[in-house]
Amino acid sequence: MMNFSSEQSVTKIGDVKLGGQPGELPTVLFGTAFFGKKYQEPDAAALEEIRGFIRAQETLSRLTGNPSVVDIYIGNRDTMAARIDLVLGELPKNRPISLDVPESEVRQAVLKHVHEIGASGRVILNSFNLAAEEKELNCLREYPPGCAILLGYNPKDFSVDGRIDMIETGAGYLDNGLMTYAREFGIKNLLLDAGATPFDHSAAETLRAIPVMKNRWGLPVGCAIHNTVESWLWMKQYRKEHKAEYLTCDVGSNALPIMLGADFCVYGPIRNAGTVFPFVAMVDKFIAEGAEDYFGVSQSDDHPRRKLG
């Protein structure tokens, strides 16, 4: 539907390719595993369930052509090794893994751990953000992951410009921009996350930031827009009695960034893969058809446009 006059690079992380002009490559989908009370101290059945979700995501990825990444939630250092091992054990050898580690100290431990097991090159750090203090910066310098998602979340300024400022200058929170640090640390692949914010906190600026960031840097851009739906106050009550309707909104929200040029979506719990993949494949078909008809952007046979006639 749209095309950027600035060059749009294609990034290859293991066997996953993303970026380029809208419609060129299918949207890459990140499903988060291990998030939720049930998986805090998972028993054998819960672990088997997670393996099942990972396999299901793989199957759907093969079916639709939308590349998949398992996003591993790691809340503390005690669980990191087992979680990473489990996921690596289920995936092809060259598939990247995304690590969602909210606490800085744990992030540092995880970066060191994946370095020690020789997996740094497969890691997508989700995310490198304003909360990185000196120790974490040093850790990233010492153990750079193969890829980092630079998060545009800027609590001082939720406008597009504020989000860009976070990546470009550090917005006063860091001495340098996230981009400058990432390049200094030698992180080869960079993805940009527009940083989803709740309704009434400039939620739409998350979407507006996507084409602006793509235009500015030519790098793959995405976000976890389902978080805006998850934090919607009215929906919090409504969803108690209307689970299907909530899922519709949650999954449907992914169409918005893709329409504005997003290359990847962090879609939330991996258990939703069954609904998310066909939905996103449909959106990708629209985008790809428009890109080819008007801009001459063609797709490979692995694109949902070709696979899902």
């Binding site: 539907m1 095309n3 006059s5 600035s6 597009v160 507006r208 040029g261 008007y294």
Partner: peptide
């Protein structure tokens, strides 16, 4: 205009505003 730096033409081609 999608943003102060971005111009979208009727066929949604996006380019820098200054152009």
């Amino acid at each position: 205009s999608l943003h102060k730096d971005l111009l979208v033409d009727p066929y949604l081609e996006v380019r820098a505003m200054e152009a």
